[in-house]
Amino acid sequence: MSSSTGCLAIIPARGGSKGLPDKNIRLLNHKPLIQYSIEAALKSTCITEVIVTTDSPRIAEVARDAGATVPFLRPEELSTDEAKSIDVLEHAVDFCEQQLKQYYPYIMLLQPTSPLRQVQDIEQAFATFLQYEADSLQSVTLSSSHPYLLRELQDEQLVPYLKHQDSHLRRQDLQDVYALNGAIYIMKRDLLCIDHSLVGARNYGYIMPEERSIDIDTDFDLKLAQFMLTTNDRSN
């Protein structure tokens, strides 16, 4: 097996999607959704190889046309609604090592549903990962909903989501909290394949702005991303 000091970027793109059919290849500003992630990964100097794991021959064709490697079609048991991302990643890494004889010490998961993620996000996130000698890193964005402000209904009564909290804090006194935006996940290969985890003891975050953190899950998300892309094109 040939050794590598590089990073393997894995883009998972299952064919089935209940919320937004064929969302991974839906056209966004005249381009298939998955192509945005492929192009950003290919332009990133920190990434050695870009592969797409999919069960769909149609997605595989679109991915290859965009420049990604699609070395296999994902097995059926990893293509269901219940399939876990970690199992999909482990399968892809194992295929690269066993079949392609390629070893990568760093693995990056890039969701195809984050089209506004930029090359600079990928490279800066990876630089942060290396700088802190992290086991893992996830991209986040400032949350617009603080847990302190959340409420739940119990017998039709509105009660605080956080129990035993101070009920008199001002909004400006609340500490910033961050939400995973799904755009970038980085981990050591051994954390994934030996510890079977995406989050290690030394876990760090990379903050992305809200306007680049749209995660496409609904038709509304797609329209919002279209608006952002169109707006950016007009301002350039």
Rank of each mutant, 00 (worst) to 15 (best):
Y161C: 08
Y206C: 09
R58H: 08
S197V: 02
L162P: 03
S4E: 11
I194D: 11
Y161E: 12
Q98P: 00
K23T: 13
P75N: 02
Q172K: 10
G200C: 06
Y148W: 15
T80E: 06
L137Q: 04
A92Q: 06
L149H: 12
R74Q: 15
D121K: 07
I10H: 10
Q154I: 15
K223Y: 03
V119P: 04
Y132S: 07
A63K: 07
H196S: 14
A92W: 12
I59G: 02
L110M: 11
Y104E: 08
D215Q: 07
A9S: 13
I216C: 04
A83S: 15
V52N: 01
F126S: 00
Y204N: 08
L42E: 08
A66I: 09
S235R: 12
Q111R: 01
Q120V: 12
L110T: 07
N24W: 01
K43P: 00
G200Q: 10
I216F: 02
M1P: 05
A9P: 01
G15R: 00
T54K: 11
C7W: 02
D55V: 05
A66H: 12
E39A: 09
T48H: 05
V119F: 01
R171M: 07
H168W: 05
L28G: 11
A225W: 01
Q154W: 09
L116Y: 08
L130H: 07
E152K: 15
Y103D: 11
H168S: 14
Y204R: 12
L162V: 15
T54V: 11
L149R: 14
M108S: 06
S44H: 03
H30S: 12
L153E: 13
E97C: 03
T141N: 13
Q226E: 15
D166S: 03
L137D: 10
E76W: 00
R58Q: 10
N29A: 14
Y178P: 08
M228R: 13
H91L: 09
A183L: 04
Y161V: 11
T128A: 14
Q165H: 03
I86C: 03
Y106A: 04
L180H: 07
L149G: 13
T231I: 00
Q111D: 15
G200Y: 09
S56D: 14
A201W: 05
R14Y: 00
L192Y: 03
E76F: 05
I184V: 14
I47T: 03
V177M: 03
V70A: 06
Y103S: 12
M1G: 14
A41M: 11
M108K: 02
P57G: 06
P71R: 06
Q157A: 09
F227R: 04
A201R: 14
G19K: 09
S17R: 07
F220R: 14
A40N: 13
S143E: 05
K163A: 10
P71L: 09
S4N: 15
V50A: 13
H91G: 05
K163Y: 06
H196V: 02
Y204K: 09
I10D: 08
L169D: 02
C46W: 02
L162D: 01
D219H: 11
Q154H: 14
T128F: 06
H30G: 01
V93M: 05
V159P: 01
L224E: 13
A225D: 01
F227T: 10
L109Y: 10
A40Y: 00
Q131T: 12
E156M: 09
D166I: 04
I10Q: 08
V159C: 04
G16W: 00
A92Y: 05
L8D: 07
C46L: 03
